[in-house]
């Protein structure tokens, strides 16, 4: 009796130790990030002001604001979404609602996995070869956004497909039994109940797209432009590339400037993510069945 209690005590201590170790590992993973964010806020915070957000860079990009880069990122993201969301939702609809379990479907799934796994710089090469040169879009917002769209397509597809598949199959059968076509079933039952999940995925895609640098470097983003883009055929500045430029390419930049740019960029991205996560949690709490 006594011995078994001792054994239990020992077991409990070992278990506590493991628990502590794993907990420490998790903390080690999360804490540096919080520290880094803290440093960004402390060092970049002073640079941020309305002027910073709404004026052009001046003095060879060693002073002034980020306005053209901010607008450029909005352009790039918007055009990329226009291209990738319809295509991605269509692909997800096919995979979730129509695709039979055959070889073609398996190949499509493999293609999506690989599309997501190809390095961003390879996407950039593809963008240069296909959109800039072959289709003769030149270095332009269109070429850059197309490259971004191809790259982030898997994000939309996966999020949309998951959200559609969370709608119970019984609802579909009920509709089919009433003589609804597949499309009528999708329109009246599947889409209304997955649209919010799709939106969550789209927001996530926005944040991914806004932060990408490599794919736009050679396809449409410029180091510095003294004017705002007027159409998709223009080049543009972008926040992500601007950070790279002021951090590495421009001599004599005061320290707070790149920190300011980084803080604005990461705030945009994390805010988008936070919205997406919050949205998802809100939805989880609001069950319709």
């Amino acid at each position: 009796m006594f011995e078994s209690t001792a054994l239990n005590d020992k077991n409990r201590r070992v278990e506590k130790l493991w628990r502590l170790l794993f907990c420490a590992m998790t903390v080690m993973l999360v804490v540096p990030v919080l520290l880094i964010l803290g440093v960004l806020v402390v060092k970049g915070g002073p640079a941020i002001s309305m002027d910073f957000l709404f004026t052009d860079p001046t003095d060879g990009m060693t002073a002034g604001g980020v306005f053209p880069a901010l607008i450029g990122t909005v352009w790039l993201v918007a055009v990329a979404l226009l291209l990738s969301v319809p295509l991605g939702v269509a692909a997800a609809l096919y995979l979730s609602e129509y695709a039979p379990d055959n070889l073609l479907t398996r190949i499509i799934n493999l293609a999506i996995i690989n599309l997501a796994g190809v390095p961003s710089i390879v996407h950039a090469l593809f963008g240069v070869g296909a959109f800039v040169i072959f289709f003769q879009f030149g270095t332009s917002i269109l070429a850059a956004s197309l490259t971004l769209a191809v790259m982030t397509l898997p994000v939309v597809i996966v999020a949309t497909r998951e959200s559609m598949q969370s709608v119970p199959h019984a609802f579909r059968e009920a509709c089919w039994n009433m003589g609804a076509t597949r499309w009528q079933t999708i329109r009246h039952v599947v889409l209304p109940n997955s649209i919010s999940g799709i939106l969550t995925g789209v927001i996530l895609e926005v944040s991914r797209t806004a932060g990408e640098t490599a794919p736009i470097m050679f396809t449409g983003a410029a180091l510095f432009l003294p004017y705002l883009p007027q159409s998709v055929w223009d080049q543009t500045m972008a926040m992500s590339l601007h950070l790279f430029v002021v951090a590495t390419q421009v001599p004599g930049v005061p320290e707070h400037l790149p920190f300011g740019v980084a803080l604005v960029l990461i705030s945009m991205v994390l805010a988008m993510n936070a919205v997406s996560i919050g949205f998802r949690m809100y939805l989880r709490g609001k069950k319709k069945w």
Binding site: V30, V33, R208, I266
Partner: peptide, 8 residues
């Protein structure tokens, strides 16, 4: 953590 852009 996964969302922080690579340039950052």
């Amino acid at each position: 953590l996964a969302a922080i852009p690579s340039v950052v």
